[in-house]
Structures are given as C-alpha cells and as structure tokens.
C-alpha cells in the first residue's frame, strides 16, 4: 500500500494512544478507580479459596495452595478478559474504522493490552503473596513471563480469528461466553488434576493438552510448588509427541487467526 504511508513508528504511537484511552476510561467514574483492576481478581480468588480451599478441602495435599490457586485464577482472569475484549474490539471501534484508514490489527492489540497491564499488576500481588507464604524466589520464576507470553499469543490468535468472524456474525460473542464457562471447569484451576486422574487417567492427560492448562500449571510449577502436575511431566516418555501439542495449538491459532484477520480486514469498513 503506497498511502497512507504511515511509518511503523506512527502505528506504535496510535497503539499507545488507544491503549492509554482504553485504560484511562475503563474505570472512569468509579471511586476506587484503578484499584478495581486488583480487587476484582482478588475477590474472585477469595470466594474460590473459601469454597474450595476451606470448605471442600481441595488443596489439602498441595503445598502453598493459596498461592497455587491465586496464580490459576489470575491467569484465567487474564485470558478471559483478553479474549472477550479482543473479540469485541473491531465491532466496538466500528465507527473509527469507517472514517479513518489505519492498520486494523492495532484496534485488537490495544484492546488486549489493557488486560496485559492488569496481569502485570496482579503478578506483583502474587509475588507479595508468595513471599508472605514463605516461598523462596528461585531462578524458575523467570520462566513465568515466557509462558505468559505464550498465553498472550494464544489470546491474540483467538481474538483475531473470532473478532473477524464477529463482524459478520455477532453470535460469536455469546458462543464464546458459554465456551468460557465450559473451559473454566475443563482446566484444573480450582481442583488438582490428580482428582480427575483418580477416576480416569486418560481424561486427566487430555485436559492437560489444553494450552491454557499448560500455561497455568507451568506457572504454578515455577512459582508455587514443584509438586504441580505439568503437561510436560505428567505425560510419560512414550507419549513424548503429545507434549508438544499445547504449543502447537498456540502456533496454529496465532497463524490461522492472523491470516484470516488479514484476509477479512479489507472489508471491515463496509461490513460493520
């Protein structure tokens, strides 16, 4: 495309301005403001901890269960916020797309970046929790950003793909809501995977092939307790090839999503 020949740098400026606006307006008019970015996941954690940790005793055989649970709920909140904002982004910014020409992916990325900022804030809280709970920091903590990046790539891929379809078929938003409910229970966030393995080992293994589960379990393994069953160490040596399934899903989603989004983005202005 010859014109508007916006430099890469100017796209970055636009991304920054849109993200700043999103973040600034998110908690507009609330007394606690940005604090809600912290309070919401913490409250979700408190409820889950009370019900499943204290009353149902899910985490009895897991050391540092509160931190273990908090890592799970925080990462889940991030994925949920990231995709729901990302999928809606193009439709929400429809007015803009009809009036100015700029790379459409910027809208999706800026919508998800607010979730990234919230995730970073929440991880500071997790670190504080971990230190209070008596966990000593190790070098494995440094792996956590890598797996979180992997999850962000998955979220972007999903947002690109479903966001593009959502322009024409708004059912996507509702379908995704339901799917997220199901996913929440299909991922060992509140329960340890060993509870599933007691009745059906194959089911437990299949559940761990989900990249979201892989990311959560890896983060827990690195930060909370090495007793976590990760996708990598839960599958046996003979199943080596399956260990690569989660990362393959992420790569496929990202490539497929970006390709589809690129293909459809020319027509967004007309179809919204």
């Amino acid at each position: 495309m010859a014109i508007p020949n916006f430099l890469y740098k100017n796209n970055r400026v636009l991304l920054k301005e849109l993200t700043k606006t999103d973040f600034k307006l998110r908690y507009q008019g609330s007394i606690l403001g940005y604090l809600w970015a912290l309070l919401r996941p913490l409250m979700m954690f408190a409820i889950l901890y009370l019900v499943f940790g204290q009353l149902l005793k899910f985490g009895n055989d897991i050391p540092h269960y509160p931190v273990y649970l908090l890592i799970g709920t925080t990462i889940w909140s991030f994925f949920s916020e990231c995709t729901s904002q990302g999928i809606q982004a193009i439709v929400n910014r429809g007015e803009l797309l009809r009036k100015v020409c700029f790379p459409k992916y910027i809208v999706v990325v800026s919508a998800t970046l607010t979730a990234v900022i919230n995730l970073l804030i929440n991880f500071i809280v997790i670190i504080i929790f971990a230190l209070i709970d008596g966990i000593t920091p190790t070098w494995t903590w440094l792996i956590v950003p890598i797996v979180l990046f992997e999850l962000y790539m998955l979220s972007l891929g999903i947002s690109f793909l479903l966001g593009a379809i959502n322009v024409k078929y708004r059912d996507i938003t509702s379908i995704w809501d339901v799917l997220m409910q199901a996913l929440f229970y299909a991922i060992p966030i509140i329960y340890p995977i060993s509870m599933i393995a007691e009745t059906n080992t194959t089911a437990a293994k299949v559940l761990l092939l989900n990249p979201i589960a892989q990311v959560i379990q890896d983060a827990r393994y690195c930060m909370a307790t090495t007793k976590t069953d990760t996708s990598w160490n839960y599958l046996s040596e003979s199943e080596l090839i399956f260990k690569f399934i989660p990362i393959c899903i992420v790569i496929i989603m990202l490539v497929w999503g970006s390709w589809y989004f690129r293909k459809k983005s020319k027509k967004f202005a007309e179809e919204i």
Binding site: V13, T21, L25, K99
Partner: peptide, 28 residues
Amino acid sequence: IELGVGFNPDLSGRENIYLNGALLGFSN
C-alpha cells in the same frame, strides 16, 4: 470524512487532539 473522529467525551481537549492526531498517523 467526518470531523472529530475518535473524539471521546471523557477525555480532555488536549488528550483528544493527540488521539485524533494519532489516528491520522501523526507522531506525538
């Protein structure tokens, strides 16, 4: 195509100028 594209009522005049400028492809 239209005046004030991307203008946001909850942002200040200054912020809106910079946002609008970014949309038109100008750097800060």
